[in-house]
């Protein structure tokens, strides 16, 4: 069928382009995004950009102050720690370990939580209730305590602490997804989809998921900051990542030994964790308001 229309040339931005347009209008969100991109860059390309091996010890250069201090040197940008390891390289690798594992943990928790929550939301009666409260026992205790219990049973180590945090994050996702799907399933447009013959999977994918993204972004950002804090807390307590592994919490704990002598060994990893959580919160918030603008304005 051939048609002649001058208007077809007009560009119609895709949903993601519209979201980006709305996101761009907030400057704070853009700064947060730039910061987050920096951490993502470190997470992916740390081996390529680090000046030193994060684990190589140099007895010639113990506790060198950072480059901006009076007696610091530019060869070690953030100075060195008590074993003569370059702190800048260690923090870059620390972003890789802390940020990367947190992201992985949140993605796994989100996939499992949203799946169980959706099933619970679409079922009804006792089955729905059972699905919904499957992991509720975990919510009775703070996430960090659950993590400590699981690490206590399975033994310390980064992978064990990842499992622990994943388990602790799942119930929130289940509850939010279930209540969202519940309220959505009652709406008229879902009913007209089912009248068209859409099965549960199609209803979820085409009708519910596009509306759920805002909720997922909010919960995902929240979960990601919780995961980062928990992973570094477990590393700090020497229950998570073990000694030579450059994990931000573990680096911070190692810096504690020479805290009075070399305060930058505590301050710099601490600031990194702070900035990481801050940027995630800002980007999550900006993304949420951008998504809301796309659908409501």
């Amino acid at each position: 069928m051939s048609r002649f229309s001058l208007y077809d040339d007009e560009a119609h931005p895709s949903p993601w382009q519209q979201t980006w347009q709305a996101f761009k209008s907030s400057h704070i969100a853009l700064v947060g995004l730039a910061l987050l991109m920096l951490f993502v860059f470190f997470a992916f390309f740390a081996p390529l950009v680090t000046p030193y091996d994060p684990n190589s010890q140099n007895t010639e250069a113990l506790l060198i102050p950072p480059s901006w201090a009076a007696n610091g040197s530019i060869t070690h940008l953030f100075g060195t720690d008590a074993l003569g390891r370059d702190l800048f390289s260690r923090i870059m690798y620390g972003c890789r370990v802390t940020f990367g594992t947190s992201l992985l943990v949140v993605i796994i928790a989100m996939l499992i939580g949203v799946t169980i929550g959706t099933i619970a939301g679409m079922l009804s009666g006792v089955r729905s209730s059972v699905m919904n409260h499957l992991l509720d026992a975990l919510m009775a205790i703070p996430t960090l305590l659950i993590a400590i219990i699981i690490v206590g049973i399975l033994g310390s180590g980064l992978v064990n602490s990842m499992w622990a945090i994943t388990l602790a994050l799942i119930p929130q996702f289940i509850h939010h997804t279930r209540s969202f799907v519940r309220s959505e399933m009652k709406k008229d447009y879902i009913q007209s989809s089912t009248l068209d013959g859409a099965n549960y999977l199609q209803v979820f994918y085409y009708s519910i998921l596009p509306n759920m993204i805002e909720m997922l972004v909010v919960q995902g950002a929240l979960a990601l900051s919780v995961a980062i804090l928990d992973i570094s807390a477990l590393g700090f307590l020497n229950l998570g990542a073990q000694a030579p592994l450059p994990e931000l919490g573990a680096i911070l704990a190692a810096g504690l030994d020479a805290g009075y002598l070399a305060p930058w060994n505590i301050a710099l990893p601490g600031i990194t964790i702070f900035l990481m959580v801050l940027s995630i919160t800002i980007v999550g918030d900006g993304l949420r308001s951008a998504l809301r603008k796309r659908v409501n304005r």
Binding site: D188, Y189, Q191, D196, Y206, S207, P210, N211
Partner: peptide, 25 residues
């Protein structure tokens, strides 16, 4: 359906809303 704020899916475009009955049937 009776006209209300819930009679159209807010998350997808008109084209996708209209595509559904055809895609399925």
């Amino acid at each position: 359906f009776q006209h209300s704020s819930e009679s159209m899916n807010p998350g997808i475009s008109v084209g996708q809303i209209l595509d559904e009955p055809l895609r399925l049937n």
